[in-house]
């Protein structure tokens, strides 16, 4: 394990109005590792992952306390440019959400909004990103077709390609396979395996098997608290806490 974490959250509290959705969450994410966030519905894992790129800023009544560091920078520092943050911390959402644009324009979107004008560069980066997302062979002959004509699994890989195109350092995935069939899910999981060589990946998942298959580290959330955090193998074979064991073995959830 590399000594210095890529992202760290310390004493993180999160409120929706009066409701406290996260309580004192301390976590570290390391480079070239996949961390899975697991826990029952409403446990705060999605809220947590959306704190990491400040997506929760969009909710007017929300409030964050505590610190989240990206490298050594506090991402909730007022001077920090949230637009820059989101370029460095990319996100893939639960439901595939390609724009109603062509496959090419979807992939190039992040580059264009970040001011890249060089056509050759965009072209190369689009190809590279689609290859990295294991979608290139399926779409290379129809890059100008609308992305909405792709299957759900293809759309999700396009969303991953779209996120990769802006060269993020961290990739957040909020249940990326929950709307997909088993074969598409398998492709996404294989992809996560390859991508972790290059990125810090944090994935929220409802599926224990998926967490066990794709992640190096696992964090178990319950009722807004981080219950247990450790390497995935240990967690799934010898969890420290009874509560974790009960959840993992399906006794509650």
């Amino acid at each position: 394990m590399s000594p210095k974490p890529k992202m760290t959250s310390s004493n993180l509290d999160f409120y929706y109005g009066d409701f406290q959705a996260l309580q004192d969450v301390n976590l570290e994410f390391h480079e070239r590792q996949v961390t899975a966030l697991i826990g029952p519905s409403g446990c705060g894992k999605s809220t947590y992952i959306r704190c990491l790129n400040r997506m929760n800023d969009l909710i007017p009544i929300s409030r964050v306390e505590g610190r989240i560091l990206l490298d050594d920078e506090d991402i909730y520092e007022p001077s920090l440019d949230v637009v820059m943050l989101r370029r460095r911390v990319g996100m893939v959402f639960q439901k595939p959400n390609p724009f109603p644009k062509s496959i090419f324009e979807n992939t190039a979107y992040g580059l264009r909004v970040n001011g890249v004008k060089d056509k050759g560069f965009i072209q190369n980066r689009v190809e590279e990103s689609l290859k990295r997302a294991a979608l290139w062979d399926e779409v290379k002959d129809r890059l100008d077709d609308t992305a909405l004509g792709l299957s759900g699994g293809q759309q999700q890989r396009l969303c991953i390609a779209r996120a990769l195109a802006v060269e993020p350092e961290v990739l957040l995935m909020d249940e990326p396979a929950s709307a997909l069939d088993p074969i598409a899910t398998q492709k996404i999981e294989e992809l996560i395996h390859e991508l972790k060589e290059l990125y810090t990946i944090i994935i929220v998942t409802h599926s224990m098997q998926q967490a066990a298959r794709v992640s190096d580290m696992t964090a178990f959330f319950y009722m807004g608290k981080l219950i247990e955090f450790g390497d995935t193998d240990t967690m799934f074979t010898r969890p420290k806490l009874k509560q974790t064991e009960d959840y993992i073995t399906g006794r509650f959830g």
Binding site: N53, M55, L58, V83, M84, R86, R87, G90, M91, F93, K95, N97, P98, F99, P100, K101, Y109, G110, R112, V113, N114, C159, R162, A163, V166
Partner: peptide, 25 residues
């Protein structure tokens, strides 16, 4: 809203999101 989130998540500003994604849609 997923369009807006996707766009903002890629480092687009609010206006870029409106102009490039929300208005065309």
């Amino acid at each position: 809203d997923t369009y807006r989130e996707a766009s903002l998540g890629l480092g687009a500003t609010k206006w870029q999101t409106i102009y490039r994604v929300v208005l065309p849609a």
